[in-house]
Amino acid sequence: MANKEHLAIFEKGIDYWNRWRRENPSIRPDLSEALINDFDFSGINFSQVDLSGAKLIDAVFNNTNFSQAYLSETNFSRSILMGANLSRTILNEAILNKSDFTGSNFQWAYMVRTRALDTNFSGANLTGVCIEDWHINSSTQLDGVICNYVYRRQKKRERYPSSGNFAPGEFAKLFQKSLETVDLIFRNGIDWDAFAYSFKKLEVENQGGQLDVQSIEKKGDGVLLVRVAVAPDADKAKIYNDFMQGYEFAAKTLEAQYQARLEDKDKVIVRQEAQINRLFDIVEQQGSVQKALAENPRKVSNTNIINSQLASGLVDAINVESQQIGGNIHNNNA
């Protein structure tokens, strides 16, 4: 929640806010989850402001300074931010749909799982931006984007291109082409049973959606990327979210089943160990009788009866054991 004092200062107007910011440069204002909409805030100083979870809808922020602001899960839908400075901002899971960022500066910003459907980035500077799992569509405008390179993963990993810079216009061309795929990233391997369940569920829910696994790539550190081809007009963000929800549900369910099987297996092993110990006891008894016979043949009576009982017990134990283990052991002398 927003700091009440900071919110009260903000509500006094742009000039008052900007003057307070100049007089208190060490304070990092907290306007998280604030509702800031339907007004022209052009020129306001939002640098280093915590606007996480805030709703900045249908507002104008032309030439506004957002540098190093925290904008995770911020909703900018239908807002205008032409010429805004968003360098080094944290825009993770932010909603930029139908917003106008013409000529804005996003250098080295984090745009992880950011939605930018029908968004205008014309002439914006996207050099050094982390675009892991970002979502754009065919109406996202990338004309004239200035971009030397981007990162596919956080902490400046997976630089693209790996060396050198994009040629002019190359970034827009490459990423407009990638609009027909959804990238599914798995960091701890893939449970293929859960994957199959979720993918089939997605196909059923998106009949005629042209879903197809295009490629599977190893990215190092145990990370796997599955690229799924989708229809050009598909809602990639919805497909991604629906798949991951189905996958996580299936993975948890299967994990419970695996655990139950392991517990059953442990019980079987305990029973098997008991039967094996019983076999050893019978063999030892038989050995003791045979030894007694060898040492004192006249003192042991009913020898045939004793040996017959021991042999019968041994066969019964083996038959029980074979049934539990699934073997096929028979008494050929029967």
Score class of each variant (00 low, 15 high):
Ile146Arg: 03
Asp242Met: 08
Arg278Val: 12
Cys130Leu: 03
Asp183Leu: 09
Trp192His: 11
Met111Cys: 14
Ser288Met: 11
Ala194Val: 09
Ser162Lys: 12
Asn18Trp: 13
Asn85Gln: 05
His135Tyr: 09
Gln290Thr: 11
Ala317Phe: 05
Tyr240His: 05
Val226Asp: 03
Ile57Phe: 06
Pro25Phe: 05
Trp20Ser: 04
Tyr110Gly: 05
Asp183Ala: 15
Glu217Pro: 00
Gln324Asn: 14
Gly123Trp: 02
Gly287Phe: 07
Ala2Trp: 00
Ala94Leu: 09
Pro161Asp: 10
Glu217Asn: 10
Ser99Gln: 03
Gln245Cys: 03
Ser47Met: 02
Asp264His: 14
Ser139Trp: 08
Ala274Val: 15
Thr140Gln: 05
Trp192Arg: 07
Ser72His: 03
Asp316Gly: 13
Gln275Tyr: 09
Leu86Asp: 01
Lys267Leu: 14
Phe121Tyr: 07
Asp143Gln: 13
Ile95His: 01
Pro29Ala: 08
Ala59Trp: 04
Asp183Trp: 11
Val300Phe: 09
Glu321Ser: 15
Ile9Gln: 09
Ala317Met: 07
Lys291Cys: 07
Gln214Asp: 15
Ala124Met: 04
Asp50Phe: 06
Ala8Tyr: 11
Gly164Lys: 07
Thr303Ser: 10
Glu5His: 12
Trp108His: 08
Asn105Pro: 04
Asn148Cys: 13
Arg271Gln: 12
Phe166Ile: 02
His135Glu: 12
Gln324Phe: 03
Asn296Ala: 05
Ser163Trp: 03
Lys265His: 12
Leu31Pro: 01
Ala292Pro: 00
Leu184Glu: 00
Thr303Ala: 13
Ala317His: 03
Ile27Thr: 13
Leu211Glu: 03
Asp100Gln: 02
Ala311Thr: 06
Asn120Cys: 06
Asn188Asp: 15
Ala251Pro: 01
Gln259Cys: 07
Leu31Lys: 00
Gly287Asn: 14
Val49Leu: 04
Ala59Tyr: 02
Glu11Arg: 15
Ile95Thr: 08
Asp221Ala: 10
